[in-house]
């Protein structure tokens, strides 16, 4: 399991059901992600990046195709088993941070541990360690609205890390942040990937964000049009899309 791919998908299709009929968004996507990879996904707005990430994160189901996550056939998992995968294997980081506004930073970070049945003392200890790791150790009792956007994203990353997942999925994690803060967040991702060997897949519109990754997936109209090293990508594939 540790040696096999973290993600393996074949002929993945997704269509949304709308009032105007089914809208196909992803067409026969194939991809394999090995442990320790650092991948950036780029593509024009509406090309299906978020749709793809949500399926990878087990937040949404594909219409057809095969998805193997950490050696498990995702389509065969029950609702509870999918929740377990989201809890243990994946750490999801959102563009809008998605912290609970009424909970302290410490409680926000500790939240995934509640659903893995960890005792309170242990939960708080690990949440504290994670906040230290993202450089926010002194803000344990603060609320999300008392810190900056960059700091909130660090808290969200700490929350994604607290259950020691193999895979971090981040959908435009720097989309709401200024350039300087974005670089700091990317440095944090780089460190997690290099030092801790965590596999990272992130979506971005900026080529200098994508430059932190090793591999690039370029999506266009729901199809992968480039899959290779960032440094070998043609300028068109790295083109900023915003």
């Amino acid at each position: 399991m540790t040696s096999g791919p973290v993600i393996h998908i074949e002929r993945l299709c997704k269509e949304y059901q709308t009032d105007a009929g089914p809208v196909p968004v992803l067409h026969d996507v194939d991809a394999t992600v090995m442990p320790g990879e650092f991948i950036a996904i780029m593509g024009p707005s509406g090309s299906g990046k978020s749709t793809f990430m949500n399926i990878l994160g087990c937040l949404d189901a594909a219409t057809s195709g095969f998805y193997l996550l950490n050696g498990r056939d995702v389509n065969a998992q029950s609702r509870d088993e999918l929740a377990h995968l989201r809890n243990q294997v994946i750490g999801f980081v959102f563009q809008g941070f998605n912290l609970l506004p009424r909970a302290s930073l410490e409680d926000n970070v500790a939240l995934p541990l509640i659903y893995s049945g960890v005792k309170r003392a242990e939960r708080l200890k690990r949440a504290g360690e994670m906040l230290e790791k993202v450089g926010l150790g002194q803000y344990r009792r603060s609320r999300p609205n008392q810190i900056s956007g960059g700091q909130q994203q660090r808290v969200a990353i700490a929350r994604a890390l607290v259950n020691r997942p193999r895979l971090i999925l981040a959908d435009e994690p720097t989309g709401n942040l200024d350039t300087h803060t974005s670089q700091e967040i990317m440095a944090l991702f780089g460190e997690l990937n290099e030092r801790d060997g965590i596999t990272i897949v992130l979506v971005t519109h900026e080529s200098d964000i994508a430059a932190h990754a090793r591999r690039l997936l370029r999506l266009s109209d729901g199809r992968i049009v480039y899959d290779g090293l960032v440094k070998h990508a043609a300028p068109a594939h790295l083109e900023a899309t915003r």
């Binding site: 377990h84 243990q88 999801f92 998605n98 939240l111 995934p112």
Partner: peptide
């Protein structure tokens, strides 16, 4: 609803 979505995204099961 959003808060419930966040909780589910980080591993809350239906029964939680």
């Amino acid at each position: 609803t959003r808060e419930i979505g966040i909780r589910m995204a980080i591993g809350a099961r239906g029964k939680d």
